[in-house]
């Protein structure tokens, strides 16, 4: 899929398994699994020496995966619609509270005008939806050069700079 990673456009070969029955056989190749599938099959999965990747939606509590984070190189965060802002908190919990330092990938309806916020919450990789202009989207990281508050990026409260 087309992604923006570390503010650069690239292609990678991860596939997101949007739907996967818990009892389905373990998929071949590089697949970002639903977290529920991971929970149901983690013993099997841990026997493989591949790298693991999962995704969560807003309904899953970040507390639930905190113990397993060490196994994941990618955690996908779902943004089903512009209005559903739960994954912003997910991102910050994973970064700030659980110290996750793998890839946080925004998946779903990833909109250019929200990427600045996502990035600030600790998301470093963005799925580029079909038909969207990735070059155009890259510009959004530069929308604002000043940040008032600290978040999961390197910003400090602005008053400390004043």
């Amino acid at each position: 899929m087309r992604i923006i990673k570390d503010k650069k456009i690239s292609d990678d070969d991860w596939i997101i398994a949007r739907e996967l029955d818990d009892s389905a056989p373990i998929p071949e190749g590089k697949v970002i699994l639903p977290f529920t599938y991971w929970q149901a099959n983690c013993e099997e999965l841990l026997k493989q020496d591949s790298i693991h990747a999962i995704w969560i939606d807003g309904d899953i509590e970040t507390e639930e995966l905190s113990e397993d984070l060490k196994h994941f190189s990618i955690v996908g965060l779902d943004f089903p619609a512009f209005k559903d802002g739960r994954s912003y908190t997910h991102a910050r919990m994973l970064r700030d509270r659980y110290g996750f330092d793998g890839e946080l990938r925004a998946i779903g309806n990833v909109l250019r005008d929200q990427m600045f916020f996502m990035f600030r919450c600790g998301i470093d990789c963005f799925e580029v939806s079909e038909g969207k202009d990735a070059e155009e989207a890259l510009k959004s990281f530069n929308d604002f050069s000043v940040r008032y508050q600290a978040a999961a990026d390197d910003a400090v409260p602005i008053y400390k700079l004043r």
């Binding site: 802002g85 929200q114 996502m118 008032y148 602005i158």
Partner: peptide, 14 residues
């Protein structure tokens, strides 16, 4: 005001 302006986590609340 300053803290809440473009707060990255709280710009898409319920």
């Amino acid at each position: 005001r300053q803290w809440s302006t473009f707060h990255p986590e709280f710009s898409f609340l319920p």
